[in-house]
Nucleic acid binder design. Sequence first.
DNA 1: GCCGTTTTCGGCCCGACTGTTTTCAGTCG
Length: 579
Amino acid sequence: MARSNDAVAALLQEYADLLTVTGGEQFKSRVYEKAARAVAGHPGDVAAVDADGLRQIPGVGASIAEKIAEYLHTGHIEAVDTLRARVPGGVLELMRIPTLGPKRAAQLHEELGVVSIDELRDAIVAGKLSGHRGFGARTAENILHGIEVLERSHGRVLLSVAAVAADEIVAALRGVRGCLRCTWAGSLRRFRETVGDVDVLAAAADGGPLMDAFTRLPMVADVLAKGSTKSSVRLRNDLQVDLRVVPLASWGAALQYFTGSKQHNVRVREIAVRAGFKLSEYGLFRVEDGSLVASETEEEVYERLGLQWVPPPLREDRGEVEAARAGSLPALVTEADIRGDLHTHTDLTDGVTPLADMVAAARRRGYEYYAVTDHAKDMPMQRMTDDKVLAQRREVRELEAAGGPVLLHGSELNIGPDGELDWPDEFLAGFDLCVASVHSHFAQPAGDLTRRLVRACENPYVTILGHPSTRLIGKRPPLDADFDAVFAAAARTGTALEINSFPDRLDLSDELILRAKRHGVRFAIDTDAHATVHLDHLRYGIGTAQRGWLTADDVVNTWPIDRLRAFIAAKRTVAAGRR
DNA sequence: GCCGTTTTCGGCCCGACTGTTTTCAGTCG
């Protein structure tokens, strides 16, 4: 079963949103928001602890613990229901539009009766906003643009949302009598950054029991279709899931077929046709006599076509078919190759978990090394100071002495509008490594953005450029910089580019990774964890790196600690010599 | 509503940018 934490956190967040929209006390709203984050980041399942246990979670006091308990017992929270009744559902929806917050959403509702994004668009197009305080022409334009951004991602969900649902469905179906195999296929298996619907494939002699179990899963909201080989459902979170059941003998061909991509499959079928075969979800057949050539495993199917087995993340018709034919597919980096995380936070800044707990989680993952990189002092909301970061360094050294992974004390520096960093070089030299990232001024002209990122790469103490494009999937586009110039600078200076594993970032994206790799850059696959549970996001970063054709050697945090330290030191020496 | 080596009450993440204003509200990180 999935943890209850995410459902609880979503409710607490909704309550916080409702409080702001209804003009409730702002501090109260913020408290609920903070509690939502803490619950989401809490390592244990909140359903497994009693009221006292709930109160141990930071930010959760008597009142919130009571509300969580109420939800766990009854499935709802009365206080939330009461506020929901006062605010039409579409009003919270409005807040998903970038640049539109709670105040303006409430104002649009109160003054214009707008209760949905569609109605808002109509109102703007009809010019109904003009004359309303705070809504000038520019604001209307920005809102329309925000709606566009939102709708471009319409119908697709983040990889992580699909993966969590698919994991749970597959685990449930594997337990059904008669289920011989079950796994997810489709764009999820290819680790695309967003997923339109989830394809689950199972092998069984009789599909009936699987279909019954599938359509009765607790998270299913609607059954869209139900047959003996194919069924479709819509989950409560609106995600559509298709289940197909095939005979075990067709497993490999079906898995290949349903994994896609369409373009990849077209290429593979062309090869089959030219070789006198026909490839379908049932198998690879000889055209002349219709005899079956291969179907049980994907490996067999590819092999009979003269191809290496192609890892799913590569199946996008981006040269993998040619490489598979030449036998030159890369040995992709895997989760097992990762020796440590190089970008993580604690509750000293905006994380929700204390240093010691984060380190303990890293130890449990078997990491050889682990970097602590809290925000630096130029992000005012984080209230970092020289003293605080130095005190943390002492604590890090003490923890390391107590055993466990090698601990690197670092910082996530802020790259200012001109490429300046939080601290002078003398102070930066005290860190074992630094990540540097853009957190503001996203709309600068392209030339300025490029210079800014290049300048950050040129600082000898910047080991990693964090979430380099700074995009947020479905919310904020990548920076409008000349990334080829940035990648060239990273390669020249020995700066690693981050592949940030956070599901709404996945930054660099697969396409930018492919471009960066051509410049000979190194990469770091990091989680940017703000809680121990986020360390598990690593798999999404790995999938993205695989889509970018990366091998373990391309990724500095697969290297042994000595090689990693040499990489950090080399940049400091070379860059310092040039200054 | 939560929390406490400045506090059991009175604070609570702060600064900048944008677009609207004519002194500031809303949004974001």
